[in-house]
Amino acid sequence: KEQQNAFYEILHLPNLTEEQRNGFIQSLKDDPSVSKEILAEAKKLNDAQA
Rank of each mutant, 00 (worst) to 15 (best):
I38Q: 02
E2L: 05
A6N: 06
L13E: 00
E41T: 10
K29A: 08
S33K: 10
D31N: 12
D31R: 09
A50V: 09
A48N: 11
E37A: 08
R21H: 02
S33E: 07
L39D: 00
A42G: 02
E9K: 15
Q20D: 03
L13C: 02
A48Y: 08
A48F: 11
E41K: 13
L45Q: 08
Q26C: 10
V34W: 14
L45R: 07
S33L: 10
T17W: 04
N46Q: 02
N5P: 05
R21N: 00
I25P: 00
R21M: 06
E19Q: 12
D31A: 10
A6E: 09
Q49C: 03
S35W: 15
G23S: 11
K1E: 15
L11F: 13
F7E: 10
L39A: 09
K43A: 04
I38T: 08
D31T: 09
E37F: 15
K36V: 08
Q26Y: 11
P14T: 11
N15W: 14
R21L: 04
A40R: 13
F7K: 05
Q49W: 08
E18T: 08
D30T: 13
R21G: 01
D30Q: 13
A6K: 04
N22L: 09
A50K: 06
L16V: 02
L28W: 07
I38F: 03
G23L: 15
V34I: 12
A6S: 09
G23D: 06
A48H: 14
K29T: 12
L11M: 03
Q20F: 02
S27C: 03
L45D: 02
I10H: 00
V34K: 05
K44Y: 09
A48C: 07
Q20P: 00
L45T: 07
S35C: 03
N5Q: 14
D47S: 14
K44R: 05
P32M: 12
A40P: 02
D30F: 12
N22A: 13
L13H: 04
K29M: 14
A6M: 06
I10Q: 01
G23K: 14
G23T: 15
R21V: 05
I25E: 02
Q4I: 07
L13M: 14
A6D: 05
E37K: 14
L11C: 02
K29Q: 10
E2V: 05
F7Q: 10
K43V: 07
T17N: 10
Y8A: 07
Y8H: 03
S35D: 10
S33Y: 12
H12E: 06
L11D: 05
E41I: 13
H12K: 15
S27H: 11
N46E: 02
T17I: 02
T17Q: 04
L13F: 07
H12L: 11
P14R: 15
G23C: 11
N15K: 05
E18K: 10
L39W: 05
D30A: 14
A6G: 04
L45H: 03
N46S: 12
Q20L: 02
F24Y: 04
L39G: 02
N46T: 01
A50Q: 13
N15V: 02
K1L: 12
E19R: 11
V34L: 09
D30I: 14
K1F: 11
G23E: 04
V34E: 08
S35L: 13
L16P: 00
D31M: 08
K36I: 12
L45S: 03
S27P: 01
Q26A: 11
F7H: 13
K29R: 10
N5I: 13
R21Y: 03
F7D: 04
Y8W: 07
P14F: 15
P14C: 06
K43W: 14
A42C: 02
I25H: 06
F24D: 00
D47R: 14
L13P: 00
E2W: 03
D30V: 15
N22G: 07
N15M: 06
I25R: 04
A42V: 02
E37Y: 15
Q49L: 10
N15S: 06
N46C: 02
D30G: 13
H12W: 07
L28S: 02
R21F: 03
E37I: 12
K44C: 04
I10E: 01
E18I: 11
K29C: 04
H12P: 01
S35Y: 15
F24T: 00
Q26R: 07
S33M: 10
N46Y: 01
N15D: 07
